[in-house]
Simulated assay, not measured.
Amino acid sequence: MLLYNKQKKNAKGNRILISVTVLGSAGPIRFLAYEEDLVASVIDTALKCYAREGRLPLLGSDFNDFILYCPMVGPESMSAWKGIGSLGARNFTLCRKPEEKNKVVKEGDGARKGGSFKAWINKSFSLRVSTH
Rank of each mutant, 00 (worst) to 15 (best):
L2I: 04
L2S: 02
L3R: 07
L3A: 08
L3P: 01
L3F: 15
N5C: 14
K6R: 08
K8P: 00
K8G: 02
K9R: 12
K9V: 14
N10W: 15
N10K: 04
N10A: 15
K12V: 11
G13R: 11
G13N: 11
I16N: 03
I18Q: 03
I18E: 01
T21Y: 11
V22S: 03
L23G: 03
S25L: 06
A26C: 11
G27Q: 05
P28L: 04
I29T: 01
I29L: 06
R30G: 02
L32N: 06
E35Y: 10
L38I: 05
L38V: 04
V39E: 02
A40S: 11
S41E: 06
V42K: 02
V42S: 02
I43D: 01
I43Q: 00
T45D: 04
L47D: 01
K48C: 03
K48G: 00
C49M: 06
C49T: 05
Y50W: 06
A51E: 00
A51V: 00
R52F: 06
E53T: 02
E53K: 15
G54D: 01
R55S: 02
L56Q: 01
L59V: 05
L59S: 00
G60S: 02
G60R: 05
S61I: 04
F63W: 04
N64F: 14
N64L: 14
D65C: 05
D65S: 09
F66P: 04
F66L: 10
F66C: 11
I67C: 09
L68V: 08
Y69D: 03
C70M: 05
M72F: 09
V73R: 08
G74D: 03
P75K: 14
A80L: 10
G83Y: 09
G83A: 14
I84W: 06
G85S: 08
L87C: 05
R90N: 12
R90E: 08
N91W: 12
F92C: 01
T93S: 12
T93K: 07
C95L: 12
R96K: 10
K97I: 12
E99Y: 10
E99P: 03
K101R: 11
K101Y: 06
K103H: 10
V104H: 07
V105L: 15
V105C: 12
E107S: 14
G108I: 01
G108T: 07
G108C: 12
G108E: 12
D109M: 13
D109K: 14
G110D: 11
A111H: 10
R112M: 15
G114I: 10
G114N: 15
G115F: 13
S116I: 14
F117M: 14
K118T: 12
K118F: 14
I121V: 08
K123M: 13
F125R: 13
F125K: 13
S126V: 09
L127F: 15
V129K: 06
V129Y: 04
S130P: 08
S130F: 14
S130E: 13
S130N: 10
T131P: 01
